[in-house]
Design a protein around this nucleic acid. Structure first.
Length: 217
DNA sequence: CTCCAGTGAA
DNA sequence: TTCACGGGAG
C-alpha cells in the first residue's frame, strides 16, 4: 500500500513549498542547474542569472559561454550546464516559448524535452510536472532507494515502467505528484540516506526493511 | 563506468 | 578528510 506511505508523508511534511520559481522557463533552468547538485547552490546560480539579466530564453541563449558559465558557477559543472542551458534556450525559442510548449499534449511535450541535449528523463519530468502541471510522477534516485527499502519494488524496474506503475497505482493530481516527489526527496535527504537513519524516520513503522543494519540498506 | 565541479555537513 | 548533492552524456 503506497497510499499509506504518502498519507503519512503528507501528515509529516505538509506543503514543502516546491518548486520555487516565477515561471515555466525558470523551472526548466532550475531543473538543469540542480542536476546532481544541492539546491542551495542552485539558488545562488539563479541569483547570479538574475543579476546578470540572463534569466530569459533570448538573453541566455545569446550570451557568450564565458558570461553564462560565470553566472552559474556556484551550481557546479558550469561548462556542461552552460551548454545544456543554451540547448534548452534554443529548443524553448524554437517551440514558441512556454506558450508553444504548453499547447502540446503531455507525451509530445515529454518527447520534445527529452530530445534536448542535457535534458534526461528526470529533468524532463521535473519540467513537465512543475512547469506545465501535467500529472507525472517524477522518478529519481530517491524513489528507487526509498521504495526499494520500503519493499515495494520487485528488483530494479526500468524508469518508464516504474513511473507508469506509480501513476496507475496512485492516480494522483498534478499537485499530488508535486508533493509526492518533494516528500521522497526530503525523506531521502533526512532519513532514507545512503546510510539510513531509521531512528527518527517518520515512516519507519511502515517500512519493510526497518531494522536493517546501517551500512548496507 | 567515468567525467563534470562547487559547497557545506558529517 | 570524506560524503552527498531535486543527473546526463560520451
Amino acid at each position: 500500500m503506497l497510499a499509506g506511505l504518502f498519507e503519512r508523508l503528507e501528515a509529516t511534511y505538509g506543503d514543502l513549498g516546491w518548486w520555487p520559481a516565477r515561471d515555466a522557463f525558470e523551472v526548466a533552468v532550475g531543473a538543469v542547474l540542480t542536476q546532481n547538485t544541492a539546491w542551495r547552490n542552485v539558488e545562488r546560480a539563479m541569483a547570479g542569472l538574475t543579476e546578470a539579466g540572463l534569466l530569459d530564453p533570448a538573453a541566455m541563449g545569446d550570451a557568450p559561454h564565458e558570461t553564462l558559465a560565470e553566472a552559474i558557477r556556484p551550481a557546479g559543472y558550469f561548462n556542461v550546464k552552460t551548454r545544456r542551458l543554451q540547448a534548452l534556450c534554443a529548443a524553448w525559442r524554437a517551440a514558441g516559448g512556454a506558450e508553444g510548449l504548453a499547447a502540446r499534449e503531455t507525451p509530445s511535450l515529454r518527447a520534445y524535452l527529452l530530445d534536448i541535449h542535457g535534458v534526461g528523463r528526470e529533468t524532463a519530468d521535473d519540467i513537465v510536472l512543475y512547469a506545465f502541471y501535467r500529472p507525472v510522477f517524477v522518478v529519481d534516485a530517491y524513489t528507487y532507494r526509498i521504495l526499494g527499502r520500503y519493499g515495494w519494488l520487485d528488483d530494479e524496474p526500468p524508469y518508464e515502467g516504474l513511473r507508469e506503475r506509480l501513476e496507475t497505482t496512485l492516480a494522483g493530481t498534478p499537485q499530488a505528484y508535486q508533493h509526492y516527489h518533494a516528500y521522497l526527496v526530503e525523506l531521502g535527504k533526512e532519513h532514507c540516506r545512503p546510510r539510513p537513519r531509521c531512528a527518527e524516520c517518520p515512516v519507519t513503522d511502515l517500512c519493510g526493511k526497518r531494522g536493517v543494519a546501517a551500512g548496507q540498506g
